[in-house]
Design a binder for these strands. Structure first.
Lengths: 201, 201
DNA sequence: CGCGCCGTTGAGGCTCCTCAACCCGGGTGG
DNA sequence: CCACCCGGGTTGAGGAGCCTCAACGGCGCG
């Protein structure tokens, strides 16, 4: 399958909304995020992409996408030709099954995100974001003693949770002071998982 | 393909979260809604389902789903066997293409919903809900002079927009008094489309 | 040294929620 | 027949949650 490796510095955009492209990116190393830009300059981050994640499953079936992709850390990624991927989906049963499983999972995550944004408090949204990352990083064996690399800036959390940086700062400050989580040196430690799950409501 | 026709009275639930089922429903007549129930008794409505819509595309690939389906009006629907549908997807190129196109569209709608819930005001969310229905009903030729059947109760709007009934009532009251929309007899008329689009920001 | 990025904190205000009361229309049962 | 209830919509008063604006401090880098 035709593919090429690429690299992006942190904060660079990998794909811009409505650009046409005949290939999709798969993250090889680092973190990226997928978001919808808003007319007022804000954005809604829909998901954080980790190693192995495809940037947008929907993009395989269309040549443009509403979604933008930006590097959160420095990122290595890999471009795969969409047409090749589509034919592989048709011919290889295993590829198809994996792809559809991934697609289902991503859809469920967006649906949960919508639910959080519509009905939960700032505190709960942030707690759920952290717990979601804990789970996904755990599957990749990147968590040790409830501690994991956490390159997100407050701005990322704010954009993902539909909040302002100021308010995220207050909430996280609270959580720290209450001994629920700890953040230093771009690492996050969950000190009180039970309480964090309570907060996530 | 094995299928059976069914009927549900309005306000009845057609599928309850995490029930196992080997078939998916397609709406034949009437309106339904797909939602995620919340522990506190609230819910987030993710989409309104019209004639021709499949209740949940993801459900085709799993035997249980996080999502519940409820009839908004009295509804005729049709159960299709999931395994049959999956084999049809593998063997029939046209079925596959239509299915994936539908899936892409539904995913985009949820992503836009998340964006609205995260970053837009109550007024804008409601305006976008109305405009989204205008578009979908328009494709089905169910709109005449910006007027269409509108069976939603305030509670549905509230659950979809992440608001309370009380606040939805105020916002819609405002819109009515300002001559933007009109609602009577379960019909909605858009009186000032330009202003409605402004409001939707 | 200066500047940009990042996080923190305070004061004040708007949006939306909560609680509560009330109205209307359509059953349903005495 | 009326009494009553239930689903649905409206309105008011007060308050919580989150935002805006603003200022400040630390850190890394040209």
């Amino acid at each position: 399958m035709a593919q090429s490796h690429k690299f992006a510095l942190r904060r660079r955009t990998i794909y811009r909304t409505n650009e046409t492209s005949n290939s999709v990116a798969i993250i090889c190393d680092g973190w990226a995020c997928a978001y919808i830009p808003l007319p007022d300059g804000n954005r809604q981050i829909l998901s954080f992409l980790l190693a192995g994640d495809i940037t947008s499953a929907a993009a395989v079936f269309q040549d443009r996408s509403e979604i933008s992709i930006e590097a959160v850390t420095d990122v290595h990624y890999c471009m795969i030709n969409k047409a090749d991927l589509r034919t592989a989906l048709g011919s290889d049963r295993k590829v198809f099954d994996e792809f559809s499983a991934m697609w289902v999972r991503r859809k469920e995550e967006v649906e949960k995100l919508a639910t959080d944004l519509g009905h939960r408090t700032a505190e709960a949204r942030i707690a759920r974001l952290v717990l979601g990352l804990l789970e996904r990083l755990g599957e990749r064996n990147l968590v040790h003693d409830l501690r994991f690399a956490f390159p997100l800036r407050l701005q990322h959390i704010a954009d993902a949770a539909g909040l302002t940086v100021v308010h995220v700062s207050r909430i996280i400050g609270d959580m720290r002071r209450r001994g629920v989580i700890e953040m230093e040196g771009r690492f996050l430690t969950i000190l009180d998982q039970h309480e964090l799950m309570n907060i996530s409501s």
